[in-house]
C-alpha cells in the first residue's frame, strides 16, 4: 500500500519549525497588532488596510473557553472517524498577542478534562484522511498530564 502524503488541510495558516507548531499570523510593521488568519482578520482602523508582516504566533496560551460538538458538524467539516467521535474545541488566549484563537483540542481530551485558564500548546495533527492524503490542522493540547482512560 502506498504511503499517504501529509498536507495541510488549508495552506498558509500554520507551520512546524524545529518540531514546534506555530500559527502563521499577520502583524502591522512597527506595531503590536496581530491578525489571524493573516489576510482574513480585518484591519486596525488607525492604520487601515496595509501589507502585514508574516509572523509566528505564540505557541502557548491559556483556555479562554471550551466546548465540543456531540453531533457531526455539517460539510465542509469532514469527520475523521466513522462512526463520528465528538470533537473537543477550545478558544485560547495568547498573552503576548492579547487575542483568542479557536481550534480543536488534541485527541484524548474531553470537556470534562478542561478548565478555563488551563495552559495549552499548539500541535499539528490529523484533521482527516482520504486514500492518498493525510490532511493536517492545528490543535490545542493541554501541557499538563494526559487525562486518565477512565474519563
Amino acid at each position: 500500500m502506498a504511503t499517504k502524503t501529509t498536507v495541510p488541510a488549508v495552506e498558509g495558516l500554520f507551520t512546524v519549525v524545529d518540531g514546534h507548531a506555530h500559527l502563521i499570523g499577520g502583524k502591522i510593521p512597527g506595531r503590536e497588532s496581530y491578525f489571524f488568519p493573516k489576510h482574513l482578520a480585518g484591519a486596525d482602523p488607525a492604520v487601515g488596510p496595509t501589507e502585514l508582516e508574516e509572523v509566528r504566533l505564540s505557541r502557548r496560551g491559556t483556555i479562554w473557553s471550551f466546548s465540543n460538538s456531540e453531533y457531526p458538524p455539517p460539510p465542509p467539516f469532514v469527520p475523521r472517524t466513522d462512526p463520528y467521535e465528538p470533537i473537543t474545541i477550545a478558544a485560547v488566549e495568547l498573552a503576548t498577542e492579547k487575542m483568542v484563537i479557536l481550534g480543536q483540542v488534541a485527541d484524548g481530551w474531553t470537556v470534562h478534562d478542561l478548565e478555563v485558564g488551563m495552559e495549552v500548546e499548539l500541535i499539528v495533527d490529523t484533521l482527516y484522511e482520504d486514500d492518498e492524503h493525510v490532511y493536517t490542522v492545528w490543535k490545542w493540547r493541554p501541557t499538563g498530564d494526559a487525562p486518565s482512560e477512565e474519563n
Partner: peptide
C-alpha cells in the same frame, strides 16, 4: 472556499453555531 472564514471554521475546527453559543455559556 478557504478565503471565507465561515467556510474555514466548519472545515478546520468543526465550529458550528452552537459551538460558539456554548463557548459563551462556558465563559
Amino acid at each position: 472556499r478557504p478565503d471565507d472564514t465561515d467556510w474555514l471554521r466548519f472545515h478546520l475546527v468543526g465550529a458550528t453555531n452552537p459551538v460558539y453559543f456554548a463557548l459563551a455559556a462556558q465563559r
